[in-house]
Design a protein around this nucleic acid. Structure first.
Lengths: 287, 287
DNA sequence: AATATCCTGTAACAATTTCTACAAACGCCG
DNA sequence: CGGCGTTTGTAGAAATTGTTACAGGATATT
């Protein structure tokens, strides 16, 4: 109910009945999601090169009481938008606040949140589409720690669609895979800190072959970034000697879900066929 | 250059040197990405249930000139965050709410929360201790989907301690591993729905050999539960055709952190040795 | 139990903000 | 060009905000 109209919409709606300088002001506000409107009226007026009364008059025209009233609305709106999706992980079951699990959940929740902050949805969609294209050949590769992530992604992709390959962990057999790459190939690389030189080398060569690179890395960014067409940065720090790849896995799982639904038509047959084979082999083994 | 530290990080960093009411205040700020800090000092103080001078004192402690200075920082930070991903998000705001990522994060958040609710910390500690015992031999095994989880766990355990084995995915070679199991063996199994009969069979045989079983499964519970000495149940449902193993991974990562710190004495040498070998092999490969 | 230290809020003060009244500037039409 | 309505800015009053000084109260220490 009472969902008060968004300030942005109000501005657009009333655009017609605004005067010249009011419009200049509204342009400034719209430009950066009205964050400028959280400053004092004086400063906002300065930025927009308008006088302070103009600001007040605009606020009134939009139906607000005065400038502070408008500010409140903007702030509420912003808070709504900032709301951290995972904010409510209840870290503190107070029986064990210091338990490793509690500290861990806090860090993980923060990691996923910040990863999401930085996640560009447009990029996500682009990549999902790219990886759904059955004409593409996908090669997956992980480092020492991230091999499991690569494996997870591979495992699912392989069920959903054809032409998915998990590259061997030993660099000595990479050249053979490289030979197969061309401009229809996509190389999906996982590389987090203690970045591995071999991975970078391979990435460079793959790009040379015409392959497109999708990179999953940490906040600091692997050197492979410069070759990558698409990069996902995830937060990995937790109270441990090890980095956490949960945030990376989160993105991967979301991608799997999206890719699956995009290619559900083709993959249904594929999965049915797979089920059949599994069933057959089970009978075969005489279980 | 001059990349000023984020207010959020400042708050976390100085958390230790904050007083009780300052911490109350900082909690309020962190809760909603500091949007509350854009109001007047009076209102912020009211929300946090502290006095206005406390707010100023906190601002100073963080290195700001005064409250307005802090506000400026918050605003800049917010504007920065609004800029990139939101330019696109703005156009299709309602889209974003329905975006797969948004739906996913909600489900994951719920999953981890509920998994934590059910997690018995005493059991967690027991298992951590069990898996830290260098006299034990650990065998890891995953199913079709959960093999990556087993692999992840294996990967880390193997670095931390000796006698860790990842069992082959093909049942035909399991008998050989079974032969090696006795009452000093621990079998770590991952089995979520579409429970696999082969896994159950192996579990039964392993118990017969005297091995202890640690099981990771979903909310409904794998048939292996009846053989398992310790069971972790995690929530796996997400808006996808696939189950999410993030909650399982969460428990695994927390275990890794705990086991690592328990055996840090012994594992330090092990890791150092490993680093050396990695370095050596890199030189050997002539990178 | 007494003392010292640190934490916290009250209250008065200073600075800044928002707002109003008024007048200058602009554009439009006869 | 002069009259008229509208738009815009200036300046000061009113209100609110941010800040400082100080004292009561809590906590730890001897």
């Amino acid at each position: 109910m009472g969902s008060k109209p968004l300030v942005r919409d109000l501005l657009k709606e009333k655009q017609a009945e605004l005067t010249a300088s009011e419009r200049r002001l509204s342009a400034v506000l719209l430009e950066d999601s009205m964050v400028t409107g959280l400053q004092s009226i004086t400063r906002l007026a300065e930025v927009a090169e308008v006088s302070t009364p103009t600001v007040i008059r605009l606020a009134r025209k939009l139906g607000f009481d005065g400038y502070p009233d408008l500010q409140d609305a903007i702030r509420v709106e912003l808070a709504e938008r900032m709301k951290r999706p995972l904010a409510k992980l209840e870290a503190a079951r107070d029986d064990a606040r210091d338990h490793i699990v509690s500290r861990f959940v806090e860090a993980v929740s923060e990691n996923i949140n910040r990863t999401l902050d930085r996640l560009d949805l447009a990029r996500f969609d682009t990549v999902a589409e790219l990886l759904s294209d059955p004409a593409r050949r996908l090669h997956l590769l992980g480092g020492r720690i991230t091999r499991s992530n690569a494996h997870y992604f591979f495992n699912h992709l392989q069920i959903i669609r054809p032409h998915v390959l998990l590259m061997d962990s030993s660099p000595s057999v990479w050249p053979q895979s490289l030979l197969d790459m061309d401009d229809r190939s996509v190389l999906i690389v996982f590389d987090i800190r203690r970045y591995e030189r071999e991975l970078e080398k391979l990435a460079r060569l793959a790009v040379g072959q015409g392959a497109e690179i999708v990179l999953f890395t940490d906040a600091w960014g692997s050197p492979i970034e410069k070759y990558a067409a698409h990069t996902f940065r995830a937060m990995v720090e937790v109270p441990s000697s090890w980095d956490s790849t949960l945030a990376i896995n989160f993105v991967v799982e979301a991608l799997v879900a999206d890719i699956q639904s995009r290619s559900s038509g083709q993959s249904a047959d594929r999965i049915a066929a797979l089920e059949n084979m599994l069933g057959a082999s089970r009978i075969f083994r005489g279980n």
